[in-house]
Nucleic acid binder design. Structure first.
Length: 506
RNA sequence: CGGGGAGUAGCUCAGCUUGGUAGAGCGCUGCGUUUGGGACGCAGAUGUCGCAGGUUCGAAUCCUGUCUCCCCGACCA
C-alpha cells in the first residue's frame, strides 16, 4: 500500500516550518494581514485565546489580582527612565510622531493624507507597560497600607519584529501583563514564584503541555529585571519556546519612577515590583506541541468546540429523525461541565458529504467526533472518533454510555496528549557532562537536536561565547536541579551543584 | 537589518526569455447522480496579473521605485 495520505502537506518530517503554516491555514486559525508583521486572528483561533484568557483570568482573580487598563501610547520620556529597560527595547519600538493628517490632492486629483501636527514629545506604542504602569503606581502608593498592589492588564503590545511568524512572533500581539508592587523583596519574590507556578499549572491543565520551570541566566534576563523566571516548553521539532515569564524587578523601576511608600517605621522606602506575562504565543506553542500530519490537535479545555456531532443522513426519510437525535444528544451533553465550563457541542448540519465534514473537523482539531446514522439510531449507538487517535479509528458505543462517559473521555484525551508530550520531551532531554560530546550534539549533521542538561558554572561571557558559536541558548537553570551532587562544569571544570538546560529556540 | 526566493482567480501555480491586453488544477455557485463518507457528471461565476511611475501604438511580460510574504542569518521580554 502507498503511504497513507495525510491532510496536511508537507508533513512535519518533510518541512516543519511550512507544516506549521499549513496547519494554521487548514484549521482557519489566522492569516497574515496587510499590516507588516501583524496577523488577523480568525474566529476559531481567537476562541482558543479566549479560552486561555478565561482560565487565566479566573486564576489571577483567585489569587487577589485585579484587572485595569493603561494607555497604548507611552510618552517617550517614560521609557527612557530605566536605562537597561530603555536599551533593551529601543530597537523594536514603533513611534507616534504626529497627531493629524492633512487631505491634499496630488497631481492626478487623488486625495493624499499627509501627516501634520508634529508632536513636541513623541509617543511610543507600548512594547510592554512597566513604565506607564509604574507612573500610575507612583501616584497610587503612599503608605504600606496601599501594598501589595496587584494589577493585571489584558492588552495588545507592539514590538517591531524583523522576522515575524504567525502566533510565535508577531509585531502586534495580545497578552496579559501583571504588575505588582510590594513592601519587601521577600514578598515580591514570593509573588513571582506564585505566578511562575500558576503559569506552569495552567499550561499543563489547559494546553496539556509540560513545562520546565527555571530561572533565566543574566544574559537572557528581561531588560531591567533582577531575576527572570521562565516556563520552557519543547515542541515537536525539539526547539524550545519560552511560554511565559515572571520577573522580579527589584527596586529598579521604583527608583527610576519614584514609587515610594512610608513604611511601618515611618521611613520612606522604594517598593519592590514584579511583572509577568503570557501571550498569544501560547497558541503557537500549542499548535506545535500536539498537532499531527492531519492538522491541528486541540487539548479539550481550549477547544472552541469539544464535541462535534455529524449526522449521517443517507436516506431522506430518516434524515429528520437522525438530526433530531443529534440535537437531543447535544442538549444533554451541554448540561454537563468540563473544567468549570459547560461542554461545548456543535451539530454539523451543513449539507455536505460526510467525508468532507469529517476531515474539516479533523483539521480543526476537535477532540471528539460523533457520527450518528439511521443504523445507530435503531441500535441506540454512536460512532466515536477521538482526535488523539488515527482519523480512521472508530469505536461504536451505546449512546447512554457515551452520555455518561463523555466528560471522562475528554479528560482522557487531555491526559493522553499531556503524556505524549511528556514522553517526547523526556526522550529528547539528555544529560551531557563533557564539552566534546556537547559540541558534537549541536553540529550540523544533527538537524533537530534535542535539549541537553549540563553541570554549569560558567560566567556570562563564557555563556555568550558558546551560545553564539553553537547557535543555542541556555533555556533556563531548572529550579529543581540547582542543588545536585557537585560535579565539574562541562565547560569550565569548576565543581558545581547547578545544572543548565540548553537548546535551540523560537 | 543583510543574503536568497516569490507576489497572476479563494488556494497551488503556468504564461514573462522572443511585449499584442489571461490560463490550468483544486475550491466556489447551480442542477443532477451519489452518499457510513474527503465521490461523479453537466453548466456557471470570479482577476484594475502586489502597488506606483517609466519606455512603447500597445506591458502580466522590458526598466525604475516601493510594499508584502517565504527561507537563511543577525536581533529577540
Amino acid at each position: 500500500m502507498a503511504k497513507p495520505k495525510s491532510a496536511i502537506s508537507p508533513t512535519r518530517s518533510e518541512n516543519f516550518p511550512e507544516w506549521y503554516q499549513q496547519v494554521i491555514r487548514a484549521a482557519d486559525l489566522a492569516e497574515n494581514s496587510e499590516t507588516r508583521g501583524c496577523m488577523v486572528i480568525k474566529p476559531w483561533g481567537f476562541a482558543i485565546w479566549e479560552a486561555i484568557q478565561r482560565d487565566l483570568d479566573f486564576r489571577f482573580k483567585a489569587t487577589g489580582h485585579e484587572n485595569a487598563y493603561f494607555p497604548l501610547l507611552i510618552p517617550l520620556a517614560y521609557l527612557e527612565k530605566e536605562a537597561e529597560h530603555a536599551e533593551g527595547f529601543a530597537t523594536e519600538c514603533a513611534v507616534v510622531t504626529h497627531h493629524r493628517l492633512e487631505a491634499v490632492k496630488d497631481e492626478n486629483g487623488k486625495t493624499r493624507l499627509i501627516p501634520a501636527g508634529k508632536l513636541n514629545e513623541p509617543y511610543v506604542i507600548r512594547p510592554t507597560s512597566e513604565t506607564i504602569i509604574g507612573a500610575a503606581f507612583s501616584r497610587w502608593v503612599g503608605s504600606y497600607r496601599d501594598l501589595p498592589l496587584l494589577i493585571n492588564q489584558w492588552a495588545n503590545v507592539m514590538r517591531w519584529e524583523m522576522r515575524p511568524r504567525l502566533f510565535l512572533r508577531t509585531s502586534e500581539f495580545l497578552w496579559q501583563e501583571g504588575h505588582t508592587a510590594h513592601e519587601t523583596k521577600e514578598e515580591a519574590l514570593e509573588e513571582t514564584h506564585m505566578i511562575h507556578q500558576l503559569y506552569s499549572d495552567a499550561i499543563r491543565d489547559l494546553l496539556a503541555i509540560p513545562v520546565i520551570m527555571g530561572e533565566k541566566t543574566e544574559a537572557e534576563r528581561f531588560p531591567g529585571a533582577q531575576s527572570t523566571l521562565t516556563v520552557e516548553a519543547m515542541v515537536q521539532d525539539k526547539k524550545a519556546i519560552q511560554a511565559g515569564t515572571s520577573h522580579y524587578l527589584g527596586q529598579n523601576f521604583a527608583k527610576a519612577q519614584n514609587i515610594t511608600f512610608v513604611d511601618r517605621d515611618n521611613t520612606e522606602q522604594h517598593v519592590h515590583t514584579t511583572s509577568w506575562g503570557v501571550s498569544t504565543r501560547l497558541v503557537g506553542t500549542l499548535i506545535m506541541a500536539h498537532s499531527d500530519d492531519d492538522g491541528l490537535v486541540l487539548p479539550p479545555r481550549v477547544a472552541p468546540q469539544q464535541i462535534v456531532i455529524i449526522p449521517v443522513t443517507p436516506k431522506e426519510e430518516t434524515r429528520e429523525a437522525v438530526i433530531d437525535s443529534c440535537e437531543a444528544l447535544a442538549t444533554r451533553l451541554r448540561e454537563q461541565t468540563y473544567g468549570r465550563e459547560p461542554v461545548r457541542v456543535h451539530v454539523d448540519t451543513r449539507d455536505l458529504g460526510g467525508g468532507i465534514k469529517k476531515w474539516d473537523w479533523v483539521k480543526k482539531g476537535v477532540p471528539i467526533r460523533i457520527e450518528i446514522g439511521p443504523r445507530d439510531l435503531e441500535e441506540r449507538k454512536v460512532c466515536l472518533q477521538r482526535r488523539d487517535q488515527p482519523a480512521q479509528e472508530k469505536t461504536f458505543m451505546e449512546k447512554n454510555d457515551f452520555l455518561r462517559d463523555a466528560v471522562e473521555i475528554l479528560d482522557s484525551i487531555h491526559q493522553s496528549l499531556l503524556e505524549k508530550a511528556r514522553d517526547f520531551r523526556s526522550s529528547n532531554l539528555t544529560e551531557c557532562t563533557d564539552l566534546a560530546s556537547f559540541e558534537k550534539h549541536w553540529d550540523d549533521s544533527n538537524e533537530n537536536p534535542g535539549w541537553l542538561i549540563t553541570p554549569w558554572s560558567g560566567s556570562r561571557e563564557e555563556e555568550e561565547e558558546i551560545s553564539k558559536r553553537l547557535k543555542i541558548t541556555v533555556r533556563c537553570l531548572p529550579m529543581d536541579k540547582q542543588d545536585e551532587p557537585e560535579v565539574p562544569c562541562f565547560l569550565t571544570g569548576t565543581p558545581t551543584k547547578s545544572r543548565a538546560i540548553w537548546g535551540r529556540s523560537y
